[in-house]
Amino acid sequence: MKRRRLFPRLGMTRALSAAASAVRRSGSSNPYYQGPVTGHFDGTRFFNPDGQAPRGFRDLLKWQLGGDKAAWPSGVGVTQHQPDHRVAELRVTMVGHATVLIQAGGVNLLTDPVWSKRASPFDFAGPARVTAPGVDFDALPPIDAVLLSHNHYDHLDLATLRRLHARFAMPVLTPLGNDTILRREIAGIDARAADWGEVLEAAGVSVRLLPCHHWSARGTRDRSMALWAAFAIETPAGRIYHVGDTGYDAGRPYTTAAEHGPYRLAILPIGAYAPRWFMAPQHQSPEEAVAGMLACGARHALAHHWGTFQLTDEAREEPLTRLAAALAAQGVDAARFRAPPPGQTWDVPA
């Protein structure tokens, strides 16, 4: 594993270093990661600098009891795609939710792979798929690396990662702390972790971890104890910016990303945003995704994080309608920012 720091840890001072020493002496209660205090890690939990913490249980109850959730279909048909083993240029295939197959200059990457029926710690309860995966698992081409953005169940699916490890034994590139979760659950997995501003390399691809505004949890007692990140990916077919989840945060994630562009493609979330009073800090709207595409300097964008699992209140098709309206309002050609259904492939223009 190669791990290279691009800039000093955010906000590190002598006082923070002293605090970090105190944490190490007293023992951190974080089960996933132990390390020095930084501008986004307090010794136990990660946080969004100058950002918003995730809302608490009282607000969760208020939302869940609000009764404003739109009805979704129980199932939507999918025409599954049979991918080529290798692609010379840049091709992306929507699998579903945040799972995208990226084929770039002969390298095959998967983002946040989920083939399970539910985005949940349970196989009998929790959000269920309304679309089958756009690529059958057995039809996958050789996977050279997985990019894992954070540990929420709709992004970190251990059952799928076990299957991928057994078949491909590929490295998983992920933010700090998530590697511990993977190693505890999947024997022998090559889990490589880095902090914001650091670079991981695998299969001839360089992946820079960048800040985004989100949080993490696998249960009720580990909130924000593993880091979340966006990725700037340097591939043989061009540079890609991938965001698993983020709040818009006044555009700050995109301002940071622009420093490492320009990008041939940005892969951006557009769904799970309603109600805004609850979701805005963690999930951007379609309008914010369009603003982010323009701010980070991406020539094209692929929309994800919509239409597979009903996680929030908006109707299934609403993100598509709002995305189209936002593109028109900004005078952006709709062909530049696409929202393909599962199973659809896009050869991204050079």
Score class of each variant (00 low, 15 high):
Tyr33Ser: 05
Gln34Met: 09
Gly35Pro: 11
Gly35Asn: 13
Pro36Trp: 12
Pro36Gln: 15
Val37Ser: 11
Val37Met: 12
Gly39Lys: 06
Gly39Met: 05
His40Asn: 14
His40Ala: 01
Phe41Tyr: 15
Asp42Gly: 02
Asp42Pro: 06
Gly43Phe: 02
Gly43Gln: 03
Thr44Ala: 10
Thr44Lys: 08
Thr44Phe: 00
Phe47Val: 00
Phe47Asp: 01
Phe47Leu: 01
Asn48Tyr: 04
Asn48Pro: 04
Asn48Met: 07
Pro49Asp: 12
Pro49Val: 11
Asp50Ala: 08
Gly51Glu: 06
Gly51Lys: 04
Gly51Trp: 06
Gly51Ala: 09
Gln52His: 11
Gln52Ser: 10
Gln52Met: 11
Ala53His: 06
Ala53Tyr: 05
Arg55Ser: 14
Arg55Met: 15
Phe57Pro: 08
Arg58His: 02
Asp59Leu: 15
Asp59Lys: 12
Asp59Val: 08
Leu60His: 08
Leu60Ser: 04
Leu61Val: 12
Leu61Gly: 06
Lys62Leu: 11
Lys62Glu: 09
Lys62Arg: 14
Lys62Cys: 07
Gln64Tyr: 08
Gln64Pro: 02
Leu65His: 03
Gly66Glu: 09
Gly66Arg: 14
Gly67Cys: 07
Asp68Arg: 11
Lys69Ser: 04
Lys69Glu: 05
Lys69Pro: 00
Ala70Trp: 02
Ala70Leu: 05
Ala70Glu: 14
Ala71Val: 14
Ala71Glu: 15
Ala71Leu: 12
Trp72Met: 10
Trp72His: 10
Trp72Cys: 13
Pro73Thr: 06
Ser74Tyr: 06
Ser74Cys: 06
Ser74His: 09
Ser74Gln: 14
Gly75Asn: 04
Gly75Leu: 07
Val76Trp: 03
Val76Leu: 15
Gly77Leu: 13
Gln80Ser: 15
His81Ile: 02
Gln82Ile: 10
Gln82Glu: 11
Gln82Val: 14
